[in-house]
């Protein structure tokens, strides 16, 4: 691999991105503008995450890429191959073996360690955007800590659905200061945002980077009488029997039969390897 600089981006660009990352870590939850580059993939395919990963990768790193928890989707595979090609780093599907994990829409079930980095792909970084279209105004709201509008969104949820219906991209307040969009992860994952690993968020099209340093307080917004709940399907994984993991629902035949399985494919495979068996697997065996 001599055609490309290590991890595709030139060193100047990586330095610029690292500065944005360091600033983001210094001000947890604050959206740092950066000069997002054109990447050899379309917007919406994780160009922000890829640039952040490119800036933090070292030749010794082991990379894992997941999309909705799975290592084997087109998006995950293409990004993994991209870095195999341009950085020559080792890749893995095992959460515990990875030193850098790029993710779209999930946090792995297995708790991360302080020697790991989790990089999120972010479509729309501004949590206030849907209610306040003006960027000038939202920046002012952040700088003056005027976050009443965020609760207006939750109020609307309750008034329309009888409960907070926001199920993903559930807004959080970081270290008691900035309100942040945790990217479209399910709210089931919100409690995991307080973790040992470094969490970096990259939005390519919107040109923003933000971060949560290890062991930072992350509180999901709610009302006193409608407290935050980290919900998941009320079911166990049909493959591995796990009752504590976030599940995908699958329609399996024309009659509408369905099954539930871990969205985190590595977690599920590991449990099955350990001998755990879910309802479906037990049926098949019988």
């Amino acid at each position: 691999m001599t055609e490309y600089n290590f991890a595709y981006l030139d060193e100047q660009t990586k330095r610029m991105i690292r500065r944005a990352i360091l600033k983001g870590l210094a001000i947890p939850g604050y959206q740092v503008p950066f000069a997002s580059r054109e990447m050899p993939m379309p917007y919406g395919w994780g160009t922000g995450g890829v640039q952040v990963s490119a800036a933090v990768l070292t030749p010794d790193d082991t990379l894992k890429v997941i999309d909705q928890g799975a290592d084997d989707t087109t998006n995950a595979i293409s990004i993994r191959r991209f870095f195999e090609k341009t950085a020559g780093v080792a890749v893995t599907e095992a959460t515990s073996d990875a030193s850098v994990i790029q993710t779209r829409h999930r946090i792995p079930e297995e708790p991360l360690r302080d020697d790991q980095i989790l990089v999120y792909q972010v479509p729309i970084p501004e949590p206030l955007r849907f209610l306040e279209p003006s960027e000038v105004e939202t920046r002012k709201m952040h700088s003056l800590e005027e976050y009443g509008l965020m609760h207006v969104k939750l109020y609307e949820d309750i008034s329309q659905h009888g409960a907070i219906a926001t199920a993903y991209a559930y807004p959080v307040k970081v270290e008691g200061r900035y309100v942040m969009d945790p990217s479209p992860i399910p709210k089931f994952d919100n409690p995991k945002l307080e973790m040992a690993a470094i969490q970096l968020f990259g939005a390519g099209r919107e040109q923003r980077i933000y971060a949560i340093p290890p062991y930072t307080q992350v509180v999901s917004l709610d009302f006193d009488d409608y407290p935050f709940e980290a919900t998941k399907a009320d079911h166990a994984c049909d493959l591995c029997g796990a009752e504590d993991s976030y599940l995908d629902e699958l329609i399996v035949d024309d009659a509408g039969a369905r099954m539930f399985m871990c969205s985190d494919t590595d977690y599920c495979a590991k449990r099955r390897a350990q001998g755990h068996v879910g309802a479906q697997a037990a049926e098949d065996a019988a």
Partner: peptide, 12 residues
């Protein structure tokens, strides 16, 4: 409700 929430009301 917005102004109430803006000044810290947190009880739906």
């Amino acid at each position: 409700g917005e102004r109430l929430m803006a000044v810290g009301a947190r009880h739906y």
